[in-house]
Design a protein around this nucleic acid. Structure first.
Lengths: 133, 133
DNA sequence: TTACGTGCAAAATCTTTGCCCCTGA
DNA sequence: TCAGGGGCAAAGATTTTGCACGTAA
């Protein structure tokens, strides 16, 4: 409703910067660890709080990828993910946006509903793990 | 590796039957509630244990849909889901399997990896909630 | 008979929150 | 100045697990 007055604190900007420089889709715990190297006194609660605020403001994305932790991504563009079931690595996938948009439109038309977003998650074995086996 | 010798106990079969008759993609907690009506002494731990065993045996599917609870589905066919952000309802979606298979194949070929599965989750407002507003 | 399964409760995980002091604008 | 923010620890929520007893095959 009303715009929340939000300060850009040291903590929040460090968290954001760290996430922007990290392409591994880290969890809050991992981000906490990295943040501590810059701000030794920061607390885990603060990390969670700020990640949620950043997500709320649309600056980052929360990713639910099927393990029980939430992952975070500073890349807010529309893209899909591939998760390696062996090493756990998460890879960004550029699915042709048109294909997905097409699916969304069909769905909306057929069922008379409104689609806000579509998340596509692939699971399997990544190239590195395939080579190893 | 070796096939685990698994008994079909009263508890497990009741849980399975309940899930087969439920098309709402219930959580463990909800299934627990329904199971208690048949087996009043069953415990939540047993429900979790059996749901995980059934999933392990491929008789049911675990669904990670973005809220923090795991949902279960006795429909193990390949299909997608739509979640209403207003009422929380989960609807099965029959996306054209060919489209998704096509995406999987492209992905596998381009990146030299193996795709085991693809999960597609749409979010938005369902037809009923659209009408209400 | 006997290994697998269950009930119960405690524990483990991940995330949120209350409280009081601190600080950015 | 002073409302939003942080640190800390406790609380919540969901899921797993250890243990002793029960039961299917």
């Amino acid at each position: 409703m009303s715009v929340v007055r939000r300060r850009m604190t040291k903590q929040r900007s460090v968290i954001y910067d760290i996430l922007c420089a990290d392409y591994t889709h880290p969890t809050a715990e991992v981000i906490y660890g990295k943040t501590q190297k810059v701000l030794p006194n920061i607390s885990l609660g603060t990390v969670y709080r700020n990640l949620n605020l950043l997500a709320e403001d649309g600056m980052i994305k929360k990713l639910d990828l099927g393990d029980d932790k939430v992952h975070f991504d500073a890349d807010i563009s529309s893209h899909s993910h591939f998760i390696c079931e062996q090493c756990g690595k998460i890879i960004d996938i550029d699915v042709d946006t048109n294909d997905l948009k097409q699916l969304e439109n069909d769905l909306a038309t057929k069922n008379k509903l409104i689609v806000h977003s579509a998340a596509l998650v692939f699971r399997g074995i990544c190239d590195e793990c395939v080579c190893k086996s």
